[in-house]
Structures are given as structure tokens and as C-alpha cells.
């Protein structure tokens, strides 16, 4: 099904279908994200984040980045979120509302975030007001992504593997009980 979405979305005639899908997904993402930062239960917050992450994966599909979408699901949903839930449960998350999750002065955060959002939206509107995506879009093939990673970006890739190793060791060292 998803590839049908993809195919239709990227064809000329299917633009409107893709648009509808996109707006639904975007709405879900925004609502879930808002719930995530306002809910007063940690596990609920992680589950809302889960929804946001899935929605982002769906956005990737609409953008023709199939591999990135699959990676998003594998890494974020399969690993990072499980890890977070693990952490939440290990730190004795309560069932039901908690009182002490937020600072008292939320308006400062809201103010800063809104101001930041306003500035960004304004500049985006100024910069890319009526720029449309290329009509004839081809899904980016995994093979091409692999070629790109292992030729142009080989050095960052290797650096990243070292980073992951360092993070692994770091996490073990930090969390170890001695």
C-alpha cells in the first residue's frame, strides 16, 4: 500500500493524493508533538513521540526517501524508543498524572518557542514562498544512497562509526555500577 502511495504521490496526477496524505500526517505529527510536550505522564509522552516519529517516517516516504523512512522506523521506533521506554520504566514511571514534570514558568518557554517559530516561518515564507517541489520526482534508490555514502561521504561515515563506538563505551562506563 505504501508504495502505491509513493507511486501516486510522485506522479503528476497523484499530487493531490500526496498532499492530502501529507496534511493528515502533518496534523497528526503536530498534535502528537504538542501532546508530548504537555502531557503529564512520562510514558504517554514517549508514546506520543512514537506517533510523531512514525509520522516523520511517513513524511520521508512522501518525499521519496524510502531508505531513510525504513531507517527511521528501525532506529527510532525499534531502538531509540524502546531504549527510552526502558529508561522510563527503570526510573519507576508512575501510572497516572504526575505533578512535577514541568517548570512553573511555562510562559517563558512558550514565548521563546513562539518567537523562534515566528521568525523561522517568516524567513521561510520570504525565502521559499512559492517554490514548488519538482513535479517529476523519482524515488531515491537505496543503491544510489549506498553509493553516495561509500564514496562522497566515506570519511564522515567512518567518523560516525567511531562516534558510535565511543558512545557505546561511554554509555557502558557511565551506567556501570562499580
Amino acid at each position: 500500500m505504501m508504495n502505491l502511495v509513493l507511486q501516486t504521490a510522485l506522479s503528476d496526477t497523484g499530487n493531490w493524493i500526496a498532499n492530502i496524505f501529507f496534511y493528515i500526517i502533518a496534523a497528526v505529527a503536530v498534535v502528537a508533538a504538542l501532546k508530548m510536550v504537555t502531557t503529564n505522564n512520562v510514558v504517554h509522552a514517549s508514546l506520543y513521540l512514537l506517533v510523531v516519529l512514525s509520522a516523520v517516517a511517513a513524511t520521508y516516504v512522501i518525499l521519496g526517501a524510502e531508505f531513510a523512512a525504513a531507517t527511521q522506523v528501525l532506529v527510532y521506533l525499534g531502538a531509540i524508543m524502546v531504549l527510552l521506554l526502558f529508561g522510563v520504566m527503570l526510573t519507576r514511571a508512575k501510572i497516572g498524572a504526575e505533578t512535577d514534570l514541568d517548570y512553573d514558568q511555562r510562559w517563558i518557554g512558550a514565548l521563546v518557542a513562539t518567537a523562534l517559530g515566528a521568525v523561522m516561518m517568516y524567513s521561510l515564507w520570504e525565502g521559499f514562498g512559492d517554490v514548488t517541489m519538482p513535479a517529476e520526482q523519482v524515488p531515491q534508490r537505496t543503491e544510489a544512497v549506498a553509493d553516495e555514502i561509500f564514496s562522497t561521504y566515506i570519511v564522515p561515515f567512518e567518523a560516525l562509526s567511531v562516534l558510535l563506538l565511543a558512545a557505546l563505551i561511554g554509555a557502558v562506563v557511565v551506567a556501570r555500577r562499580d
Partner: peptide
């Protein structure tokens, strides 16, 4: 940090 960044961007 974010406030300052906002102001600077603005």
C-alpha cells in the same frame, strides 16, 4: 540560548 538565537536571527 534559544532566546538569543531568535533575537539574532530577527
Amino acid at each position: 540560548l534559544f532566546g538569543a538565537a531568535t533575537v539574532m536571527v530577527a
